[in-house]
Amino acid sequence: MLLVFSFSYKVEAFDYSSNLKYDLSAVPQQWDSGNLPTKHSTAQYRLISCNSTSDTENGACPIEGVYGPKISRSSPINTWGQIKLSLHEKTTHQNIVVDIGALRWSIGCDDRYPWDINQCKLVNTFPSIIVGMDSNTLKNIPAGIWEGHLILNQRDYTSPTNIVEQVGLKLTVEVTDSSKQLIYFPAFPTSDPRVDLNLNYRPGSRTNGAVSGTASLDMCLYDGGTSAKLVQLQFQDESGGLIGKDSSLFTVYRDGADKNKVENTINYKLQVLNPTTGGHDEVLNGKAFVWKDANARNIQRNVVLPGIPGVSLCLPAPLTFITPAFNYAEKTTGHYTGVLKVIYSISTH
């Protein structure tokens, strides 16, 4: 005769949520979730654990509970029970794993314990779970909006394989890096960009010596993950003081020559792709312009920026350099160069 015994536990499951927001210029000393109450008393169900020791998706830690030393209320988070938890960036879908500390305490027992309230009175009081991250963990989370879901099990200490409750924490960490706003040129990731105006002779034009050209430069604007509401750009060069020159144009000069002589200068126009409209804006030399709701069309793209870990989002704003036709016979032969300065600022309001 075969006897089969089975035991059934009704496992309760419920979620808490916590939102943390900070800038990398002012990282908190630590963050903790506050008390996450459980519904089963310390009299029997005093252990907490993870679902896996290796899978970090919902937290990796001991799976049947472990006994830990008593720690004081002010003990640093790195002395708590340690959990590895995956966080996922909301837009770039990048994944990272962070260190989470966990402990338990109960009313009537002022001390804290990792995992198990093993020295508290085993009475019918409902213990709480607290989880947290210290500054070493927080400062290494890149800019972005990161989401994770930690699940901890409350177990029967007399039979640790029995789970009676699952406590979940839906965690959102929004990190900005306001000091890292930058203009990124993908073709020149670590150096100042150089642009050839691509001047070409145009035979058959009204003036047989006509020369003109068009060139492009990919440019992307990174706001430090601050979700900028307003972008301001200004382009300028050193040609503003030239007598008789159209102030809206930009200029390159023959190397080593008198910059005030027309025969030593070549003017060009500048356009930038407007991310809010998809059209091209004419840029005026030295005059700032503003884009409101710059990412309203949701066209930010994933890039890897120098000096910034992981994948970042930047706003595409490619440039077009247009050289109107001119008679090359009126220019002095030589090599022409110029410097264009781009000034970028943002506002989050």
Rank of each mutant, 00 (worst) to 15 (best):
L3C: 12
V4M: 12
Y9V: 15
K10N: 14
E12W: 09
E12C: 03
Y16L: 13
Y16K: 12
S17N: 15
N19Q: 15
Y22E: 04
D23V: 11
S25C: 10
Q29P: 05
W31V: 14
G34D: 02
G34T: 01
N35V: 02
P37C: 04
T42V: 15
A43K: 15
Y45L: 11
L47S: 05
S49K: 02
S49I: 01
S52E: 08
T53L: 08
E57A: 15
G59R: 01
G65Q: 00
Y67D: 10
G68A: 08
K70D: 09
S72W: 00
R73W: 03
P76H: 02
G81T: 00
Q82E: 07
E89W: 08
K90L: 08
A102K: 06
S106G: 06
S106I: 06
C109L: 01
D111A: 06
D111M: 12
D111N: 14
P114L: 08
C120G: 06
V123M: 07
S128R: 03
V131C: 11
I145D: 11
W146R: 08
W146Q: 05
E147G: 01
H149A: 09
L152M: 15
N153D: 12
T158C: 06
T158V: 10
S159C: 10
T161W: 09
T161L: 09
I163S: 13
E165L: 02
G168V: 03
K170T: 06
K170P: 01
T172C: 00
D177M: 01
S178D: 05
Q181E: 14
F185P: 08
A187V: 01
P189Y: 10
D192R: 12
L197D: 03
L197M: 07
N198M: 06
N198P: 05
Y201A: 09
R206H: 09
S216N: 15
S216A: 15
L217T: 01
L221E: 11
Y222I: 01
Y222P: 04
D223E: 12
T226V: 07
A228K: 08
K229N: 10
L233C: 10
D237M: 00
E238L: 07
S239T: 13
G244M: 06
G244I: 07
K245T: 10
S247K: 13
S248I: 00
S248W: 00
F250V: 07
T251L: 02
V252W: 04
V252A: 04
Y253C: 08
G256Y: 09
D258M: 03
N264G: 04
T265S: 07
Y268F: 15
Y268T: 03
Y268N: 08
K269N: 13
K269Y: 01
K269W: 00
P275D: 00
T277D: 02
T277R: 05
E282A: 06
V283I: 15
L284S: 11
G286I: 00
G286S: 01
G286R: 01
V290N: 09
D293C: 07
N295S: 12
N298R: 14
V303K: 10
L305F: 07
G307K: 05
G310D: 04
P316E: 02
P316M: 03
L319M: 14
L319R: 03
T320C: 03
I322L: 13
P324G: 10
Y328M: 14
A329W: 11
T333V: 09
H335A: 06
L340Y: 10
I346V: 14
I346M: 00
T348H: 03
T348V: 12
H349Y: 11
H349V: 10
